[in-house]
Design a protein around this nucleic acid. Sequence first.
DNA 1: GGCGACTATTCAGCGTTACTATGTACTAGT
DNA 2: ACTAGTACATAGTAACGCTGAATAGTCGCC
Lengths: 110, 110
Amino acid sequence: MGKQMTEMLKGTLEGIVLAILSVRPAYGYEITARLRDEGFADIAEGTIYALLVRIEQKGFVDVEKVPSEKGPPRKVYSLNAQGREYLDEFWTTWGFLAERLEQLHTEGGN
Amino acid sequence: MGKQMTEMLKGTLEGIVLAILSVRPAYGYEITARLRDEGFADIAEGTIYALLVRIEQKGFVDVEKVPSEKGPPRKVYSLNAQGREYLDEFWTTWGFLAERLEQLHTEGGN
DNA sequence: GGCGACTATTCAGCGTTACTATGTACTAGT
DNA sequence: ACTAGTACATAGTAACGCTGAATAGTCGCC
């Protein structure tokens, strides 16, 4: 992946995953696959799992272990109230940043 | 500043500064002040200076020392061809990310 | 029954980035 | 002198995503 994208994902990837979980619960492998499908081709699996551990420790998600038909049991994550609140803040922060950047982009001309 | 913003700025702050320089050359103190005016209230001076050193070392900017009427001489940075190219890439990367996030935001409903 | 392919999670070590906190230096006003 | 404003610099820290590898379960094929 481009280094630019790597750095840009810092802080936003967490929001992206929370946003995915806000639609419906999901487990790590599934999230990774979905991100790949949606164009984030090179996000490392390890990155997602580490992120999931982090948001669990922060208390943004509830976890349930569900047996899988194929392979080891899945850890299904679902967004809780605290996570939803944090996601709201995320959208606010993102909105501010996106607005500034759009302004800079049109200002700059190209 | 919120921790969310801090993390989100990683990777984008560099683009923001390059975008500012693409309009016209500027020096560190000036850039910091402008960012403050534009709502990035709590960006530390040290952050900008460190960033400027970085983009200089990467060869994205040309530097000229200009005496100031008040205080030490200014280091005026101007975007060069390589920096402009990198800025283009930045906008492409940013555009992709912004598109994905907007999609997620409307999908998520709130 | 052994092997690869797919599913699923975990972890140690690394590089990059922004923040904190502090220091240096020059000018002007009181 | 002293303070405020201008202007730049840097050492140390924390957070985050990536690399690369390990572990473990299930399935189908030869």
